[in-house]
């Protein structure tokens, strides 16, 4: 089960945090810092995408300047969550292209990430949460089909 999802930039600023177990505010601040210090210095090339974190583990992936981290149970399937991150990123990219909002801020050339950048996450934080709720719920994967999620988001976008 996912305990939390964090999206942080290289400086450690958290751009998105979603908690599936209750932590109090101080704990959240501490965890953000710890995860950043654990993940950011890791070698992209020679180190795996998994790292033990307390009694759990962080599965993470870096897209351009952003680290997408999910904290899962020690016995969870690492690769399944690694690809879940990718699915989420692809959907973010596609849905912000749909909204055509702030796409002029394209900065990075990363293959999948050129349409969604840090600023999208900041300015559209409430949409990001809505997207998240379509892909993950209660700490589990909810929908794994990009098409299904995207057409659902499109439908929601049309609502007043």
């Amino acid at each position: 089960m996912i305990r939390f999802i964090l999206v942080q930039n290289r400086q450690g600023k958290t751009r998105l945090s979603k908690w599936y177990v209750p932590y109090d505010d101080e704990e959240k601040v501490r965890l953000r810092g710890e995860v950043h210090r654990l993940v950011a210095p890791r070698d992209q090339k020679h180190q795996s995408n998994f790292v033990e974190f307390k009694n759990h583990k962080i599965v993470y992936r870096r897209y351009a300047g952003l680290f997408f981290c999910v904290c899962v149970d020690a016995n969870d399937n690492e690769l399944a969550y690694l690809e879940a991150i990718h699915l989420f990123v692809e959907i973010l990219g596609k849905s912000f292209m749909l909204s055509a909002y702030l796409t002029y801020l394209l900065a990075d050339t990363d293959a999948f990430f050129d349409n969604v950048c840090e600023l999208d996450l900041v300015f559209n934080f409430y949409k990001v949460y809505a997207i998240l709720d379509e892909i993950f719920l209660a700490g589990e994967i909810e929908e794994t089909s990009k098409d299904v999620v995207l057409s659902r988001l499109e439908e929601l976008e049309k609502l007043e």
Partner: peptide, 19 residues
């Protein structure tokens, strides 16, 4: 087809079932 992820039939579902 919507549930194939890079040509793998819903890997997440497979993983869940196998578990």
């Amino acid at each position: 087809a919507a549930y194939a992820y890079y040509k793998v039939p819903s890997p997440w579902l497979q993983v869940k079932l196998l578990r």
